[in-house]
Nucleic acid binder design. Structure first.
Lengths: 207, 207
DNA sequence: CCTACCGATCGGTAGG
DNA sequence: CCTACCGATCGGTAGG
């Protein structure tokens, strides 16, 4: 028997649940998560699991929140030390790719997967993801602005276009890793990003 | 009462089921499809629905097969008339983007969504998707080879890298349409592709 | 955090 | 292609 535990222990259990949910959700999707499966995996009862959140949706939101926090701590977090502009942005994408590639257990980017999963399902989960993605876009945009101001990029750079293309590369890396198990995914991603950031919208020839 | 119908009628019903499944599956995912929901939507019984396929997985496979067939008829299909190489490849991507963008009802590319959904779930569905994607990659690779041979691209072009980047752009278009409802998604995609195919791996400066 | 339980829905079958 | 039904599992609650 393990009846009501201390606040500290309860918080630790909550963390364990979210941790496990991040792993299971990466495989079966966030919607494919079930309280029963989660409980069995953790050696707990269903009531013990859901008691920490109230509803399945609240659990899902807690999982997404945790994923957002980890992404932020890791990707923009590790780029903080770099000089604003291209250097910081390169560092951030480098970090994102490393984050997606390194861990044999947690491969790919959870947020990216969930973003695709909920792209057609309105609701609070989709809203949280949209907010997180908008913040990331703002971040990338701000660094590109910085780069233009510092003269690292041409004054007529189409910044939203670059944001779009950089996002596409991250998606390509994710697919290459998860779907194709392509060991060169990280390299291809880095090369593509370097190419875009070094020679953007070459207005050299043509109109 | 609508008891056993003719072979023709049965085939028509089967098509109706798949058509509806393509719509529902685009929203809730292929795994989120339920026979009960499908039956209610079509005004049939569950047994009437599943009877055409046997199992849910067989139904899902039929849906994926149909999606693959539509993609092929539409995208490489409409590029058949174009000259091999860059012209045909541009036409194909142009067609893909149009296909994702045009229809208010069926937005995005079903196969792309399902590819993400099953990227971590081994089984026959994933296998079919992998095969379809491999065929598409081969197609793109062949046209790029053609382009190099014809002198449309530099002899030292890194073809797998281009395939990777072109795929990323398609993914970016899909996300911009479905998640962000970005009306400029198609334009951004076209511009990105034009940029890659016109000035690939600019070996001009540097080592 | 557990046992015991709820109504609803799941995929699927029997039989016509 | 339907009715009627099956065991299993879903999310969630009551009560301790």
């Amino acid at each position: 028997m393990s009846p009501r535990k201390s606040v500290v222990e309860a918080a630790a259990t909550r963390t364990r649940i979210i941790e496990r949910a991040l792993t299971l959700g990466a495989v079966n999707g966030l919607e494919g998560l079930t309280i029963g499966h989660l409980a069995t995996d953790l050696g707990m009862s269903k009531a013990g699991v859901i008691g920490h959140f109230g509803t399945k949706e609240a659990l899902q939101l807690a999982v997404v929140d945790e994923a957002v926090e980890r992404f932020r701590a890791r990707v923009p977090g590790h780029a903080l030390g770099a000089r604003p502009g291209l250097e910081r942005l390169s560092r951030a994408f480098e970090e994102w790719i490393a984050y997606m590639t390194e861990d044999e257990e947690h491969r790919g980017c959870f947020l990216t997967s969930v973003a695709m999963e909920y792209d057609e399902r309105p609701g609070p989960i989709r809203d949280v993801i949209l907010t997180a993605l908008a913040r990331w876009s703002d971040y990338v945009t701000a660094e590109l602005d910085e780069a233009v101001t510092a003269g690292e990029l041409p004054r007529d750079t189409d910044i939203p276009q670059l944001v779009f293309e950089l996002g596409g590369i991250a998606l390509a890396v994710q697919q290459a890793i998860l779907l194709n198990h392509d060991p060169s995914a990280a390299d291809r991603g880095r090369r593509a990003i370097r190419r875009i950031l070094n020679k953007p919208t070459p207005q050299v020839l043509g109109s």
